[in-house]
Amino acid sequence: MKLNALTLVVALALPGAALAADVFRWVDERGQTVYGTQVPPQHRVRAVPADAPLPPGTSACEARWHRYLASAACFDQYRVVGGGLKPEAYRRCTEVPQPDPCT
């Protein structure tokens, strides 16, 4: 019984982990952190998966914004014309509410 529960947990975790690897973050020419699935060629060397650890010294507020922006980038992959979302977006992405601005 324990083995089946462990197998289920691993099976459910893998699709999310695989998808998270498809969303990247990088710093653009203006010093802004960008999240997306299509990394421009000039940023491919420095792009990391969005779920990679954040740099040391990242504030709690910045971490909340990181989770929100990574979530938005994931959902962007499933947008359709007119602004709707494909149903699988909710199975593959974690919905994160927009945090308050950092002060």
Rank of each mutant, 00 (worst) to 15 (best):
M1S: 12
M1H: 06
L3F: 14
N4G: 09
N4Q: 15
A5G: 02
A5W: 04
A5D: 08
L6R: 11
L8H: 13
V10E: 03
V10K: 07
A11C: 15
A13E: 01
A13K: 03
G16H: 09
A17W: 14
A18M: 09
L19E: 13
L19K: 09
A20P: 00
A20G: 08
A20E: 05
A20I: 00
A21C: 07
V23C: 04
V23R: 03
R25T: 15
W26N: 11
V27L: 05
E29I: 08
E29L: 10
R30V: 13
R30W: 11
G31H: 09
Q32M: 04
Q32S: 11
T33C: 02
G36N: 01
G36P: 00
T37W: 01
Q38C: 06
Q38K: 10
V39Y: 07
V39A: 06
V39F: 06
P40K: 01
P41I: 06
Q42W: 12
Q42H: 10
R44Q: 12
R46I: 00
R46V: 01
A47S: 11
V48H: 01
P49N: 05
P49Q: 07
A50G: 11
D51R: 01
D51T: 04
D51N: 08
A52I: 03
A52N: 03
A52V: 08
P53W: 01
L54S: 09
L54T: 09
P55L: 11
P55W: 02
P56V: 14
G57Q: 08
G57Y: 13
T58P: 11
T58D: 09
T58L: 15
T58C: 14
S59C: 13
S59T: 15
A60K: 15
E62I: 03
A63R: 13
R64Y: 10
R64C: 04
W65Q: 06
W65F: 07
H66P: 07
Y68L: 04
Y68A: 04
Y68V: 05
Y68P: 01
A70I: 12
A72N: 14
A73L: 07
A73S: 10
C74W: 02
D76Q: 13
Y78V: 01
R79T: 12
R79K: 14
V80A: 05
V80M: 10
V81N: 12
V81W: 13
G82D: 05
G82R: 09
G83A: 14
L85D: 03
P87I: 00
P87S: 04
E88P: 00
E88F: 00
A89T: 10
Y90H: 14
Y90L: 07
R91Q: 14
R91S: 13
R92T: 02
T94W: 08
E95C: 00
V96C: 07
Q98R: 12
D100A: 13
D100Y: 11
P101S: 08
P101I: 05
C102V: 05
T103F: 07
